[in-house]
């Protein structure tokens, strides 16, 4: 049997019958191909979703490391300053030894001083009757009454 005109290639007489049988036998044994994506449209949809996720993730990662790096820079800078300070202290000043009683008394003194300052400031803010009259003259009575009522001001 010959192919089309002019072809010098040949096959045996029953070759194509045998070939057909062989192909059909092999096809029955061949496993059916299974695709994760049934068609190209589904594949494109999944790829687009994945791309979107990746770009969002990328954006987040791109922004975050810059903030983190700023923070880490600040930390490292402060650490450097602290370490320099510590080095200087260790070189120049001997750390004083303070007892717990001394710390307690220092705290009490500090507290007293704070309350004194607060009381002084309050006294300074306290208005005399003349000053109140003066204010009353300029302020609306309703407003002043409201302020006195809602702020428990003792006159």
């Amino acid at each position: 049997m010959m192919a089309k005109n002019k072809s010098p290639f040949k096959v045996t007489n029953n070759y194509f019958d045998d070939l057909e049988k062989e192909i059909l036998a092999k096809v029955q044994l061949a496993p059916k191909k299974k695709y994760l994506f049934s068609n190209s449209k589904t594949l494109i949809r999944y790829a687009a979703a994945l791309l979107l996720l990746l770009s969002v993730g990328g954006m987040v990662l791109w922004i975050q490391p810059s903030d983190l790096s700023d923070a880490s820079n600040q930390i490292s800078q402060s650490q450097t300053i602290d370490s320099i300070g510590q080095n200087v202290e260790s070189l120049v000043i001997d750390e004083p030894t303070i007892s717990s009683n001394e710390i307690e008394s220092f705290k009490n003194e500090n507290h007293k001083a704070q309350t004194q300052v607060e009381q002084q400031a309050f006294q300074e803010l306290e208005l005399t009757e003349e000053e109140l009259d003066y204010l009353e003259y300029y302020l609306e009575m309703d407003v002043l009454n409201d302020y006195i009522t809602y702020n428990d001001v003792d006159l």
């Binding site: 096959v11 194509f16 070939l19």
Partner: peptide, 8 residues
């Protein structure tokens, strides 16, 4: 139908 043509 197609085996011969594909073969050649």
């Amino acid at each position: 139908d197609f085996k011969e043509r594909v073969y050649w």
